Each structure stands twice: as C-alpha cells, then as structure tokens.
Amino acid sequence: MPTPEFILALREKIGHDLLWLPGVTAVVRNTDDQILLVRRKDNGRWTLVTGCLDPGEQPAIGALREVWEETGVIAVADRLLRVQALGPSTYPNGDRAQFMDIAFLCHAVDGEATVNDDESTEVGWFSVEDLPPLTERETACIADAYADRPEAWFAT
C-alpha cells in the first residue's frame, strides 16, 4: 500500500521532520496454532503484520484491516497484547517517523494467506518452533500471545 494521503499532506507541511504516528501490530494465529507472517518487499525480512492507523480509526479495527490488506486473511481481534512507543526510524527518502504501537492477539476466521498488496513478497503460516529471524519486539509480541495472563504489557 502506498503512503497514506494524510501522511503525504503532512509531509508537504513538515518535510522530513519527525512524525509521531499511531501504529498497530497483529499476532494472528490459525486453528493449527501457527503465526501469520509477511516477508517485506523493502528489506526482505519476515515480520508480523503491522501498519499505520488512519485518522480516527479504532486500533483493533485498523489491525484487522492491515491483516486483510496485506494477507487476504480475515481475522478477529481477541485481546490487547502490548502498548509500546517504538524508537524513531529514518526512511530511505529522509522521512523520519516514530510509532506508538498497539499490538493485538488475533485469530484467523476466513481467507487464504496470500500476498494481497505491494508491500510484501511472501506470506506464510509458521509454527512457533520454526519461526524465521524476527526482531526482539516481534518475538516479545509472540511471547505475550502465548503468556497466561489477560493484561497487556506496557513499559513502566
């Protein structure tokens, strides 16, 4: 998916300055207890489904939208996993952004996992024992999904 119009409009005003954005991460599990991952086109890494919320969009709804847009999988959000301010990022074009990430545990209810947009090159289901290399944050999100606690993690 291309850069959302609201971000392009903001960039016209602020240039490459740091932009604070709401983001979501979805840990999607299927009936075989596998985790849904996408291989990013920009860096070739496998990752959980992530994305930026649209203005006024509810976080869980945005996470489910991102899952469908990126993978063709229809999912349901089960619970909040973690809320975390991520570090700043600088993109190849010089844009800087920092995300407040809200991660959800979700389960797949329909759809076939497939590359459904132009951001990914592959989509797949992985057992927890056979995950490709992931970031520390993504590994923590998956651990939270399997933790026996109802409350969300947040930094204190």
Score class of each variant (00 low, 15 high):
89 S>E: 14
149 R>P: 00
84 Q>C: 12
102 I>W: 01
112 E>K: 08
57 E>P: 03
16 H>V: 15
49 V>F: 02
104 F>D: 03
144 D>P: 01
27 V>A: 06
84 Q>R: 15
26 A>R: 05
15 G>K: 05
3 T>D: 07
118 D>E: 09
132 P>R: 11
36 L>D: 00
110 D>S: 06
20 W>H: 14
55 P>S: 11
78 D>F: 07
65 R>V: 09
50 T>E: 10
138 E>N: 04
105 L>M: 04
56 G>E: 02
117 D>A: 13
66 E>W: 15
79 R>I: 07
14 I>Q: 06
97 A>D: 06
130 D>V: 15
57 E>W: 13
4 P>T: 00
89 S>M: 13
133 P>H: 13
81 L>V: 02
6 F>W: 05
77 A>T: 00
9 A>T: 02
90 T>L: 06
142 I>Q: 05
39 R>V: 13
8 L>Q: 07
51 G>C: 05
78 D>T: 06
154 F>K: 01
126 F>I: 12
53 L>R: 10
54 D>H: 14
70 E>G: 05
140 A>Q: 10
137 R>F: 15
48 L>W: 07
79 R>S: 06
29 R>A: 06
98 Q>C: 10
104 F>H: 02
117 D>R: 11
121 T>D: 09
99 F>G: 00
32 D>W: 05
98 Q>W: 07
16 H>C: 08
152 A>S: 03
14 I>L: 08
69 E>A: 13
115 V>D: 00
25 T>D: 10
144 D>L: 12
18 L>V: 10
121 T>G: 03
42 D>M: 11
5 E>R: 05
54 D>A: 14
83 V>M: 03
31 T>I: 03
5 E>C: 02
2 P>S: 12
102 I>G: 01
103 A>H: 02
115 V>R: 04
143 A>V: 09
31 T>D: 14
22 P>W: 15
93 N>G: 00
47 T>A: 13
109 V>E: 04
156 T>K: 03
152 A>C: 00
96 R>G: 00
49 V>D: 03
34 Q>S: 06
78 D>A: 09
46 W>V: 03
64 L>M: 13
58 Q>T: 09
38 V>E: 04
24 V>D: 02
152 A>L: 07
143 A>H: 13
102 I>Q: 01
23 G>R: 04
62 G>C: 08
54 D>M: 15
36 L>I: 10
83 V>R: 05
84 Q>I: 15
10 L>G: 03
6 F>R: 00
73 V>R: 06
13 K>H: 14
50 T>L: 10
52 C>H: 07
147 A>N: 09
113 A>P: 10
148 D>G: 10
